[in-house]
Design a protein around this nucleic acid. Structure first.
Lengths: 129, 129
DNA sequence: CTGCATGCAAATAGTTTGCAGTAGC
DNA sequence: GCTACTGCAAACTATTTGCATGCAG
């Protein structure tokens, strides 16, 4: 049995609105504006439970980042600056959901599709060099 | 300009053969059998350069794991035991390669598709509980 | 020879954990 | 009131870095 605490509400609220795919530290810094006494350990624990409950999605990398957008989608990750942009491609989503059902290696429950490359801003910067 | 060292050769050789998608520590332990004086720092540095050179692929997670299979493929990852199995689905590979070309958010160079779920062995174990 | 690569040890950084106090329900 | 949740500090673990030495080209 779970409890609804102020900390959880504020963190979920922030993640639902945010589009930057923040890491734990960014969540901590943001939430601390409203709850100055919150500790980083609490942030980590709450993020973990949200991922378990599938309220948010964890994006693995050097630092784990979190996505609170409820609509299933894919990602584009800039290998230069770390920017993560959401991609909403329904066709791909449907295609992979079908594939998911016929996987032999186990019972697939969900999937992650991420494209890697240089974002527009970084491409311009790199060309200048 | 890069140098071909014994350490690099043995690590790449191991990754090309391995099917367990080892983490840095597993690479270290395995390679140490042939090179008892190799250090973990060297393993990390070599793995990094191989990823940069696209000789191998890094699979992000709590620990980064490495895949030395040259054929493009997808993964199934067991959320219970951590097993990673390769999936060779040419159709999906072609489908996503086309999608890759029409991404607006940036110039996508490659992608990663991973399915998550419980592998066969873990499903049996969990049912017993 | 020349300087990139390595081994070692120490430092970092992200994340987890033990415990006493706090607050949902 | 019961007990899950939090804050704090300390612990942990993966990974990185500085530096003296080694070896590939």
């Amino acid at each position: 049995l779970k409890r609804i605490t102020t900390q959880k509400q504020i963190i979920l609220d922030f993640l639902r609105k945010s589009k930057i795919h923040p890491d734990a530290d960014q969540v901590f810094l943001e939430v601390r504006k409203k709850l100055p006494r919150i500790s980083k350990a609490t942030v980590y624990r709450i993020l973990d439970t949200f991922v378990d409950e599938k309220l948010i999605v964890a994006i693995s990398g050097k630092k784990t980042r979190f996505d609170g957008n409820k609509i299933p989608h894919q990602h584009f990750l800039c290998t230069n600056c770390g920017l993560i942009v959401d991609i909403f491609d329904d066709e791909t989503e449907k295609y992979l959901n079908k594939k998911k059902e016929i996987i032999k290696e186990g019972k697939a429950e969900n999937f992650n599709l991420t494209f890697y490359g240089k974002c527009k801003k970084c491409r311009k910067k790199i060309i200048k060099k």
